[in-house]
Design a protein around this nucleic acid. Structure first.
Length: 904
RNA sequence: GGACGAUUAGCUCAGUUGGUAGAGCAUCUCGUUUACACCGAGAGGGUCAGUGGUUCGAGUCCACUAUCGUCCACCA
């Protein structure tokens, strides 16, 4: 980026560095006047763009693509804030930094949304037909994408828009078909007739982790199929019993031994004839229910697995759906599940077959997209087999995915999620990837209507059947699970399956940052798909952030408008910088954080503080000062040395914390430095005789750079006012400089601060009007020279009318005496002096010091402590004890002299 | 049922190799002195959930208990 480019695009507020007056610099920073302009300048300058640059180290973040369903919420906002911090930091550090934005088509979610919109017009997707419906969806997605893009910009996200991607784009779609074919050829993708989770509203399958289990009250029915059946079974779903093929019991359960492997022909509700074979299975708990379980292989995953285990047994070989895709019980009266259940129960009761009905609570599965109760039905679907060895690799997909994390290729932060990941991955079985909706990547499989041979799996649309050459072929109508394409996201966005330079340079990506709630849905799928496709990890680090909750700890939800915060409202009201800080500071990685408006307002105040610190400096330095290059020689006074020392430590610590992903800690430290050390002390010092423009400017500029990843807008706004031609976002990250560390001076100046604080505190204790100036005398000891140097500041900040300074001297009667490090401070209060009050104050202080001293002496008296503790800890304790002892003696002397004076 | 996390000031939360507790907000007192009232100065407020252990020393490590929460499993 050439700095000269800036001028031609000057659309920012017309703030010119020279001749600044107070009128031109408003007292309060108004974010809304700056943010959009600054973003436009950044973007049009090309500063966000990354290119393959072998001379630099790449730093790559692929943005988790927001769903194409609509608007940005706080979950996106926190993600964008954290990623932008990482990205801006690395860019400043000099890495070639790519942050690639995109959108996810979110198959079911988006289709549902559009269907809902159509319903308002009384149209169903079937009225339109597949082609027209998809056009509706595409139109909707285009609008959503525009909305999302603008919202991502609002947050200040420095992502490379030239590489924006969408899961249904040609590139990612080709990647999807390529992987599908490859996995099919490897035997990892297969078509099978198995039980699946079925949403009767979405009319589609759901993967196991797309089912939410909610606790619900239900009934456990204990009954016999008919009078001839020898014992009772128990179920919560009597209507599914119409599909029973057997009864399983524990092989060692004596009660049922005599019935084992026997067949019973029974007549069940509605005259339904069933053949029930009693067979053994070790998974049955004899203590639960009746110890006998009716097996319904078509409507229970567990029963289906039992079917697979006992595939040789006639009892469980026949499988039939009794519930269809609409949730209608076809093997009864074609009524709903609920109605059928009632009728079956009534039948059992009327015929004396029901032994008892117990109230229980159990978990009921529901669709994570629409909340409808999920039915388990038998269906022919496409699956990924994670337990099959990959040809030529001698490992299963599951093993590959577990090893990627366990063997250290991928680090998950916070670490606790590594265990959770491993556990989940270990339990993964078949991943059902076909969905019976229209929107998404249509499965690249064609069937020949003439020869009915094997399905044709192809990357490109075939024109004829590969077996019989018939042109009478049709594509599988289903689409793929949205997470299938999302799983390819780190590399499908970089051009794969082509061997692009980008892929080689930017992949594996550096960090994947996302909410822990999609660890399984997405992160796990990415690891699985990427290690399979590329033989390398998709990312080196996974950073998981927590959920943003309301003040009372609930999940943010649009149905609760009172506590639900809209990020765009907050940006408008307080600015993006404030919103970013409110989500980043004050929480630990992976922990949920509560957000509420006062918090955001608090960080708005901080942003304003940055503005005003800068404002002070701008109004108190000259153009020449701003143009001058900082040199170490400019650091002259003790206060200068102090602030420089503190600044170096800040650079060191905050950088360390950012490197370790402790953004909250880094942000807090910079916040404290700016507000407390810069503003409350150094700038206050600078108001008098102690102004040093070079150091003020250098400290400000360095702090702004450290702040920039957190609050990009306000720092950029100020940067241009400081006469800088280049963007702050392109400045180099500050480096720790040991040459600017002045430990001795820094320590000395802190004694001066203690002195000022003690004077203020004592005046306050004595209820002296702060406006009223009083006299003071300081016996400075070793600090006497420094006190002379800072006399003006001490007087101004302590609000003194006169200050006498001496190295040491006689106690002053009728005066308050304060101890501040090695200094003795006397405040002669003349007529305000109250002996009793002063003696009381001294007693109180002595008591406090004594107890502190006792604690330290206790430790020092402990031989084990002295022998075992590190010597610097012991030395520190000794020094502290000496200091406290001295203070105590000093106070006692003072006390005695007061008493003596009183007697006279 | 299994696993994990949390419990620190009135509220929201920090506290990263164990060295003797912090921030913001809120509260109280005072104050518009050449950036900022979206401010400044000062104050009060915590036996760090409980019990025990390791240690010279524990908010921090270990064990158990209590309460709350999350995830996984799904007993029909």
């Amino acid at each position: 980026m050439k700095p000269t480019k800036l001028k031609s695009e000057s659309r920012t507020p017309s703030i010119i560095m020279n001749h600044l007056t107070e009128d031109q610099l408003p007292k309060a920073y108004d974010a809304s006047k700056f943010e959009n302009d600054i973003y436009a300048k950044w973007e049009s300058s090309g500063a966000f763009k990354a290119k393959v640059n072998p001379k630099k180290k790449p730093f790559t973040v692929i943005m988790p693509p927001p769903n194409a369903t609509g608007t940005l919420h706080l979950g996106h906002a926190v993600m964008l804030a954290l990623e932008d911090i990482m990205v801006r930091y690395h860019r400043m550090k000099g890495d070639e930094t790519l942050w690639l934005p995109g959108t996810d088509h979110a198959a079911i979610a988006t289709q549902n949304r559009v269907e809902k919109n159509l319903a308002a017009r009384n149209i169903t997707r079937h009225d339109l037909g597949r082609e027209k419906f998809l056009k509706e969806v595409e139109a909707f997605v285009e609008t959503s994408k525009t909305t999302i893009r603008n919202q991502v910009r609002k947050m200040g996200s420095s992502c490379d828009w030239s590489r924006e991607s969408y899961t249904l784009d040609a590139g990612p779609s080709l990647a999807v078909r390529t992987i599908f074919k490859s996995m099919f050829d490897d035997g990892l993708i297969y078509r099978g007739n198995r039980t699946v989770n079925w949403c009767t509203r979405c009319q589609s399958t759901l993967a196991d982790d797309e089912v939410d289990y909610k606790e619900a009250k239900g009934k456990l029915y204990v009954f016999k199929y008919d009078k001839n059946f020898p014992f009772e079974i128990a179920t919560t779903r009597p209507e599914t019993k119409l599909g029973d093929t057997g009864v399983a019991v524990h092989p060692d359960d004596k009660r049922f031994k005599k019935y084992l492997n026997k067949k019973f022909d029974v007549v069940f509700a509605g005259g339904k004839k069933l053949t029930i074979e009693v067979f053994p299975d070790k998974s049955i708990d004899p203590a639960f229910g009746t110890g006998a379980v009716g097996i319904t292989p078509a409507h229970s995953h567990v029963d289906f697995e039992m079917y697979e285990r006992h595939a040789g047994s006639k009892a469980v070989r026949e499988i039939k759906n009794v519930i269809n895709e609409q949730g209608v019980v076809t093997e009864f009266d074609n009524k709903s599940v609920k109605e059928t259940r009632e009728e079956v129960v009534m039948y059992l009761e009327l015929n004396g077959l029901m032994k008892e009905v117990q109230d229980i609570t159990h978990n009921v599965g529901s669709c994570y997209r629409c909340g409808t109760t999920v039915e388990i039905i038998l269906s022919t679907q496409w699956f990924i087999d994670v337990d099959k060895k990959i040809p030529g690799r001698n490992k299963t997909l599951k093993q590959l995915s577990i090893d990627a994390v366990k063997k250290g290729g991928i680090e998950i932060l916070p670490e606790k999620f590594e265990k959770i990941y491993a556990h989940w991955m270990g339990n993964l079985h078949n991943w059902c990837i076909s969905r019976q909706i229209w929107f998404g990547h249509q499965i690249p499989v064609w069937y020949c209507k003439d020869c009915k041979g094997s399905p044709i799996v192809s990357i490109e649309t075939p024109s004829k059947c590969s077996a019989c050459k018939s042109k009478n072929i049709t594509q599988d109508p289903d689409v793929l699970d949205t997470w299938f394409s999302a799983g390819l996201w780190t590399f499908s966005t970089l051009g794969w399956p082509k061997k692009t330079k980008e892929l080689e340079y930017f992949h594996p990506t550096s960090v994947l940052e996302t909410g822990y709630d999609i660890l399984f849905f997405w992160v796990a799928r990415m690891i699985l798909m990427t290690t399979y496709a590329l033989g390398e990890v998709p990312f080196k680090t996974v950073y998981l952030h927590g959920l943003i909750r309301t003040r009372s700890g609930e999940k943010m939800s649009k149905s609760k408008p009172d506590s639900c915060i809209d990020p765009l409202d907050m940006i408008e009201k307080y600015g993006a910088d404030a919103l970013r800080l409110s989500m980043v500071i004050g929480g630990a990685p992976g922990n949920d954080t509560r957000l509420y408006e006062e918090k955001i307002a608090g960080y708005r105040n901080f942003v304003n503080k940055i503005w005003n610190a800068s404002r002070f400096i701008l109004l108190n330095v000259s153009t020449e000062d701003l143009n001058k290059k900082f040199s170490k020689k400019d650091v002259t006074s003790t206060a200068d040395k102090w602030i420089m020392t503190r600044l170096q430590l800040l650079i060191k610590d905050s950088t360390k914390h950012i490197e370790k992903y402790n953004f909250s800690e880094a942000g807090t430290q910079i916040y404290d430095f700016l507000w407390n050390e810069m503003c409350n002390w150094y700038i206050e010092f600078s108001k008098g005789e102690h102004k040093n423009p070079a150091v003020l400017i250098h400290a400000l500029k360095t702090t702004l750079k450290l702040l920039h990843p957190f609050v990009p807008y306000v720092t950029e706004a100020i940067w241009s006012m400081l006469g800088e031609k280049k963007f702050i976002m392109l400045e180099a990250w500050p480096q720790y400089d040991a040459g600017l560390i002045f430990n001795a001076e820094a320590k000395k100046i802190e004694h001066i601060y203690t002195a000022i604080t003690s004077i203020r505190k004592t005046k306050s204790e004595y209820k002296i009007d702060p406006v009223k100036k009083i006299d003071a005398t300081i016996y400075g000891g070793a600090l006497t020279d420094l006190i002379w140097e800072k006399k003006e500041a001490i007087m101004r900040l302590g609000n003194l009318s006169n200050l006498e300074i001496a190295k040491k001297g006689e106690p002053i009667p009728q005066a308050l005496k304060i101890l501040a490090g090695p200094m003795e401070i006397y405040l002669p209060l003349q007529n305000m002096f109250n002996l009793e009050q002063e003696l009381e104050r001294i007693t109180k202080e002595k008591k406090q010091i004594s107890s502190e001293l006792a604690a330290i002496n206790g430790r020092l008296g402990n031989q084990s402590f002295v022998a075992n503790a590190p010597k610097e800890v012991v030395a520190q304790a000794k020094e502290q004890a000496a200091q406290l002892t001295e203070q105590l003696e000093n106070l006692s002397t003072h006390e005695k002299s007061l008493e003596k004076a009183a007697k006279m």
